[in-house]
Design a protein around this nucleic acid. Structure first.
Lengths: 185, 185
DNA sequence: CTCTTGTGTGACGACTTGCTCATATTAGCG
DNA sequence: CGCTAATATGAGCAAGTCGTCACACAAGAG
């Protein structure tokens, strides 16, 4: 039942937008009644937060898989793998991703977004340690921060503003080169 | 009067958040009545859109000033000037910026955000042309896209998630170096 | 002083929202 | 077949929304 509700909300957010996600519409699309919603969730924000948490878990899984594959690869190859993972993550459900990032304030889900971000930043930091001797970058924390937001910024824009954007393959190449050059002077 | 309304809305969005920006609250804070709001704006979204337009104009002005100063500088110095401008732009009013980017969907103001983005991307492209012979990057359109979102992504995160972020000076240094290395192989 | 015109007012209508709660339905067990 | 406990239901409530409109007011002209 929880799943049914979360999935219905997911679809509404992705297909109909944030404004359409009223409790009545969610119940309708879930094939239940409003009352049942409140048997499993304390309020509406909690439902949206659950969708966000699930989406973030998916994003996290894509990235985690990439990190585990990238371990052991040479720097450039590993970087490419991670950049591609970021593109894949944004392609999981671009419509939901847009609605969540454009309409759902951070405060709805205090920990989640922060958790995802610092989690990935930590993984980047950890990943960088293996190449420490080859890097010209000194402060790995700063480097992880810069790499994270550099890649996220470009991939986010590339996938979500698909109108006047270079094609993903080119983005992958450019980002990979940029990150490698940033890390190894 | 239009100014009074826009400024009141501005302050509410920045200080009290998007949810507080009801027509009644806007009128109250503007020291007018709801009726007057609708003498100058067709609906509430138009008021929010006006605030967004004004904020984007401010951002655009900061960037434009930097572009005009950067013209003629050597590449690295110019890059630093532009990176600093991006930081300055995000520091103009971080609270408003956060509310607008987290809560106000693109669709409220179809052209504006796109205009700002493509405007700056165009200026970057134009700026890059002066250094063409020194660049290893071939496609200037792609380069402008990458530089824009790389810098925006990192500066946005640096200013708005001020908790576990490196200090702005360091961000400026890292970004400047990264962009220069990206452009000149 | 009246008349007209432009502006400001705020109570109110029409509507939507999130959420509750008395009632109905189901499921499990002896 | 009861009987009980758990779950599902959806009409309806209070609160709040945006936007309107009949009216008050001010200012300038004649």
């Amino acid at each position: 039942m929880v799943d049914v509700i979360v999935e219905a909300t997911w679809k509404i957010l992705a297909e109909e937008g944030y404004a359409a996600a009223s409790t009545n519409r969610i119940a309708e699309r879930a094939g239940t009644s409003v009352g049942s919603l409140y048997q499993y969730f304390p309020n509406k924000d909690a439902i949206v937060a659950a969708v966000q948490r699930r989406h973030h878990a998916d994003l996290g899984a894509v990235m985690a898989a990439a990190f585990s594959e990238a371990a052991g690869m040479p720097l450039e190859q590993a970087t490419r793998r991670l950049v591609r993972a970021s593109l894949e993550a944004h392609l999981l459900d671009p419509d939901l991703h847009r609605t969540l990032s454009e309409r759902v304030a951070d405060s709805v889900n205090p920990e989640t977004r922060e958790t995802l971000k610092t989690g990935i930043q930590g993984q980047i930091r950890h990943w960088l340690e293996a190449y420490r001797d080859d890097l010209t970058v000194t402060d790995l924390d700063t480097a992880a921060f810069v790499v994270l937001h550099m890649v996220e910024g470009v991939t986010h824009a590339a996938i979500l503003d698909q109108e006047q954007t270079p094609d993903p393959q080119r983005i992958e190449d450019e980002l990979t080169a940029t990150v490698v050059r940033y890390l190894t002077g």
